[in-house]
C-alpha cells in the first residue's frame, strides 16, 4: 500500500514528491502542452528557499514573472488578475519576499489537481507505467 504507485494516487503532492512520478507527470503534461504549469510550480518552491539577501533572488523573481506570469501561456491565462498584479508590482518595486508567489502557486496547483492530475491517472502513459 505504500508503494510509489499507491502513493501517486493519494495526492498531487505525493506524485510530485516522487522523482519517477514527477518525471512521468511532466511527460504527460508536455503532450498536453501545459508542462509550464509544473515548471512554474517547482519554480515557486525553489524560489521560496532562496536567500533574499542574494542578488540572484531578485533576478529569479523577474525571470519567473516574465516567463510564466505576464505571458499568455498556461500559467498567465489561469492566474487571477489580482494575483498577477500583485506579483508585477512587487517585481517592479523590487520588493520581493519568499511568499510572493504563494497565492499564484496555489491557484496553479488547484488547477492541476482538478484537471491534469485527474486526467493523468486515467492516461495511457500512467496505465502503461502501472
Amino acid at each position: 500500500p505504500d508503494s510509489p504507485l499507491a502513493r501517486w494516487t493519494k495526492s498531487l503532492h505525493s506524485l510530485l514528491g516522487d522523482q519517477d512520478g514527477a518525471r512521468l507527470f511532466r511527460v504527460f503534461l508536455e503532450r498536453e502542452r501545459c508542462a509550464d504549469a509544473l515548471d512554474f510550480w517547482f519554480a515557486c518552491n525553489g524560489f521560496r528557499q532562496m536567500d533574499l539577501k542574494d542578488g540572484k533572488t531578485l533576478r529569479v523573481a523577474k525571470a519567473i514573472y516574465k516567463r510564466y506570469v505576464e505571458t499568455d501561456g498556461v500559467v498567465g491565462r489561469r492566474l487571477k488578475p489580482a494575483t498577477k498584479t500583485f506579483i508585477r508590482d512587487n517585481v517592479k518595486r523590487q520588493q520581493i519576499d519568499s511568499a510572493m508567489f504563494d497565492q499564484a502557486q496555489t491557484e496553479i496547483q488547484t488547477s492541476m489537481e482538478e484537471n491534469a492530475y485527474q486526467t493523468f491517472l486515467q492516461s495511457d502513459i500512467y496505465l502503461e507505467y502501472v
Binding site: 510530485l16 514528491g17 516522487d18 522523482q19 512520478g21 514527477a22 515548471d39 517547482f42 519554480a43 515557486c44 518552491n45 525553489g46 524560489f47 528557499q49 532562496m50 540572484k56 533576478r59 529569479v60 523577474k62 525571470a63 519567473i64 516574465k66 516567463r67
Partner: peptide
C-alpha cells in the same frame, strides 16, 4: 554571470524530488 534562463532552470531543478 548566470543568464536569467540559467537561474530559472537552477531554481526549478533545486525543487525537484531527488533520487530516492
Amino acid at each position: 554571470l548566470d543568464s536569467e534562463d540559467d537561474l530559472l532552470l537552477k531554481c526549478i531543478t533545486s525543487a525537484m524530488p531527488k533520487q530516492k
